[in-house]
Computed example of a mutant assay.
Amino acid sequence: MNRARGVGRDSAGGPTAVALTPLRNVGDFFAFSLDVLVTIMKPSFAWREFLEQTWFVARVSLVPTLMLSVPYVVLTVFNFNVLLTEFGAADFSGSGAAIGAVNQIGPFVTVLVVAGAGASAICADLGARTIREELDALKVMGIDPVQALLVPRVLAATAVALLLSSLVTLTGLAGAFFFSVFFQHVSPGAFVAGMTFITGLSDVLTSMVKATLFGLTAGLVACYQGTAVRGGPAGVGNAVNETVVFSFVLLFIINIVVTAIGFEITK
């Protein structure tokens, strides 16, 4: 994920260690993630830090998320309605809006913003603390920085992603209803009735699982990148950029895997 924590070359000066650096970084990330997940189960949870970070991530993510949700859902519904109109089945517009907003757009738009705004802010904060050696100071005082700082931030990103996903889905469906009824002249009753024609409880649960995994992954990447900063202030900026890129890549992978598994379970 980040820059290597060790030496870039092997003892002989060859390129072996350089070639293995990506694998070593991936291993460091998984070890870090396991450490955080195990620490979550330990007592003395930092509730105050968790609430503060939850409010912070929600505050920086709420407005951009809602502003993105309506255009994404409306664009999807518009294209879907054009196809349905060609087949003379415009009354099923609600089905397309529901399956698009619940299964994909809701959790995906939410975590794009959470990763782009919330996770990058978390990484910048932890990176600044790291280069000022605040984490080392906590260890000297007998305070576990993973339990005091990292766990609350990871859980805050997870909780905000889950909560915002439901809000984004409802907002997107409301925007799709308004656009379909008033601009594409779809029957309001048919739109509402069609929303549950394909989309059911299993799809809602799959969407919630996606949002939870998305938020958890974004939080872990942000915390790992923030604590692995090297190179002073410039390293913090690089870590923030890497957090956004790596989060997006992992979110795409998780989305594909969870969508395929959910389809196989609920079909």
Rank of each mutant, 00 (worst) to 15 (best):
84 L>H: 04
45 F>P: 02
48 R>H: 09
47 W>P: 07
86 E>T: 08
48 R>P: 10
65 T>F: 04
58 A>D: 02
81 N>V: 15
80 F>I: 14
52 E>C: 09
75 L>P: 14
83 L>D: 14
57 V>K: 01
66 L>P: 02
47 W>E: 11
59 R>Q: 07
81 N>Y: 07
71 P>D: 11
76 T>E: 13
82 V>K: 12
60 V>H: 05
74 V>M: 15
61 S>F: 10
87 F>K: 03
66 L>F: 03
60 V>Q: 03
52 E>M: 12
67 M>H: 02
46 A>K: 02
73 V>L: 13
52 E>T: 15
57 V>E: 02
84 L>P: 02
46 A>Q: 12
51 L>D: 10
50 F>N: 02
64 P>Y: 06
71 P>W: 10
71 P>M: 12
58 A>N: 03
64 P>F: 12
45 F>S: 07
56 F>M: 11
69 S>A: 12
85 T>H: 07
84 L>E: 11
45 F>D: 14
47 W>C: 11
61 S>L: 13
62 L>E: 02
56 F>G: 00
75 L>W: 08
50 F>D: 01
57 V>T: 03
64 P>D: 00
56 F>N: 00
63 V>T: 06
77 V>K: 00
84 L>C: 00
81 N>R: 10
46 A>L: 11
49 E>Y: 08
45 F>W: 07
51 L>N: 11
73 V>D: 09
47 W>Y: 08
47 W>A: 02
82 V>S: 12
